[in-house]
């Protein structure tokens, strides 16, 4: 069966999944919503105490956590809302105009 990655706006009807079903989890990861950003959060690792309070507040699941520590932003999906910057108690996130 066709994978989401192989489906696009040129796919003929014979090759689309029947009933618009998708048989894989979380195919939205393929979508670059990072290009929505006009402001960018910048992770200042030195200041970060890894309290992780920014993590659950992210609407775009873009703050990965590994081994108890947050890592840099997932910029393919981060839309630059600035919520993380506001909730960070340690000034470990800066929020700046996106440079493209």
């Amino acid at each position: 069966m066709r994978k989401a990655a192989e489906i696009n706006e040129h796919t003929p009807w014979q090759e689309l999944t029947p009933g618009a079903e998708i048989y894989e989890p979380a195919t939205s990861k393929l979508v670059n919503t990072g290009d929505w950003r006009t402001m960018t959060p910048i992770f200042i690792e030195d200041k970060c105490k890894h309290c992780l309070i920014c993590v659950p507040f992210c609407p775009d699941s873009s703050i990965p956590v590994a081994e108890g520590k947050r890592t840099d932003f997932d910029f393919m999906h981060c839309k630059g809302c600035g919520i993380c910057y506001k909730v960070c108690p340690f000034g470990a996130i800066q929020f700046e105009k996106e440079e493209k």
């Binding site: 009933g19 618009a20 079903e21 998708i22 048989y23 894989e24 989890p25």
Partner: peptide
């Protein structure tokens, strides 16, 4: 496997 049904088309 998972199945997702009923997207916005």
């Amino acid at each position: 496997n998972t199945l997702a049904v009923g997207p916005y088309g």
